[in-house]
Design a binder for these strands. Structure first.
Length: 373
RNA sequence: GUGGGCGUAGCUCAAUUUGGUUAGAGCACAAGAUUGUGGAUCUUGGGGUUGCGGGUUCAAUUCCCGUCGCCCACC
């Protein structure tokens, strides 16, 4: 079985954008890459066949959610997560650290770990850094994330520092406990918008040593310029020979800004969530398909898109589906959005190779209307 | 034909008994929010000749008369 590995293939001469190659037990990935989110072992509304057709090389899933339901044991018995969900390409599993943030009403953090009241049935669940490693090993994902504390954006430096420190202590425990050699383990840098905390978090995470490094705790409510400042300062300080993963980001504009500054991997619920709510991402901006102005619009979501939804269906039909709450509406718009995200990042990759990334960015920004709705 | 009931927003209904500020709600519709998931949720908005006509009154969705429509029972 192939081991995890990363190779830097090249860097743009005019900025920090880079292209790379990741090897995993389930196949190869070119970076920069966008990873659609399939939290509960499913990229919502899409079959694995659809996800492949959209061009995805890797997807994300979630240890916390799968542990709660159907349970690690079920998935292990069924041959691991890949076989269970019918996806034979790479999978990255998030640890559940984000749930510490998003389900914050239901949890207690202690030195040992986090105690949740399950969002599913209220049962008390205790997760530790070790337990979360074990869950991900049992799932058999290609890339596992350490269990971290991801605080909401805050000006309270003491609070952010506490999260940095506990994440570091948990990172050491996770690294020590991790045994599945074919599976990569990524560390996570915290520190909110405080540059000094970010730098220290990175340094100490590097000292522990991981297969890749993630930036967590961004896009959690902080102003965008502050996020870009952190990216600008921290990404170049990350090792060249390891993948750099910006967690939970973002929008088409975010990808350009982050890749220009040196990020390699992204995941975000935007294409799937917006898809289910009837909004499409296009090169011209957002198309809120459910809006009344598309009632009789014969055009596809995006005229120069070659995805199945754009090849076959009008905005008028898609709007009808969305407004009638037909499942197909969510499926088709999600399909388009995932296709758009994956291929936009893929195009950036090609342009970095050709040395035309910044020109491509400029062209995209000229066409893309951020206030299109 | 006789007796009774009902008619308020696109839909289902409040408010009428005892006349009193600008006739409300849910759903639907419309617009917005959505960043390591949320088929969720929230915010905001447009909507009314209170079936129609007349009367009483300072004031009528509310009381009275007529009329139209729908429903039920009886002939």
């Amino acid at each position: 079985m192939k081991k995890f590995g990363f190779k830097l293939l090249g860097t743009d001469k005019k900025c920090n954008a880079r292209v790379g190659h990741i090897t995993t037990p389930h196949g190869e990935i070119e970076t920069p890459v966008f990873m659609p989110v399939g939290t509960q072992g499913s990229v919502k509304a899409l079959t694995p066949r659809d996800v492949k057709e959209a061009g995805s090389e890797i997807i994300l899933s979630n240890a916390y959610h799968l542990y709660i339901r159907p349970g690690t044991e079920v998935i292990r018995k069924l041959g691991g997560l890949h076989k269970f969900m019918g996806w034979d390409r790479p999978i990255l599993t998030d640890s559940g650290g984000y749930q510490v943030f998003s389900l914050s009403k239901l949890r207690k953090i202690s030195e040992d770990g986090v105690t949740f009241n399950s969002h599913f049935d209220g049962r008390e669940i205790h997760l530790t850094p070790e337990k979360v490693v074990e869950i991900q090993e049992a799932l058999g994902s290609d890339i596992a994330m350490i269990f971290d504390e991801c605080p909401a954006a805050s000006k309270d430096k003491h609070l952010i520092e506490k999260a940095v420190n506990i994440t570091l202590r948990w990172a050491k425990r996770a690294k020590k406990h991790h045994k599945r050699r074919s599976q990569a383990l990524f560390g996570i840098v915290q520190g909110g918008t405080f540059l000094d905390l970010r730098k220290r978090s990175l340094e100490e995470t590097l000292a522990i040593g991981f297969d890749g490094y993630a930036l967590g705790g961004l896009s959690v409510g902080e102003p965008k310029p502050e996020m870009l400042k952190i990216l600008e300062e921290i990404l170049p300080r990350m090792p060249d020979d390891k993948p750099r993963y910006l967690m939970g980001v973002g929008t088409p504009v975010d990808f350009f800004e982050a890749i220009e500054r040196g990020a390699d991997m992204f995941d975000c619920v935007n294409p799937t969530r917006y898809g289910r709510n009837g909004t499409a991402f296009t090169s011209d901006g957002l198309v809120v398909v459910r809006n009344g102005k598309y009632q009789k619009d014969p055009k596809p979501i995006q005229k120069d898109c070659d995805c199945y939804a754009c090849r076959e269906f009008s905005r008028a039909y898609l709007r009808h589906l969305v407004n009638s709450h037909e499942i197909l509406g969510a499926q088709l718009i999600t399909l388009h959005n995932v296709h758009f995200f994956v291929n936009l990042v893929k195009s950036m990759r090609e342009h970095i190779r050709k040395g035309s990334f910044l020109a491509f960015k400029k062209r995209f920004f000229n066409r893309f209307d951020p206030d299109s709705r």
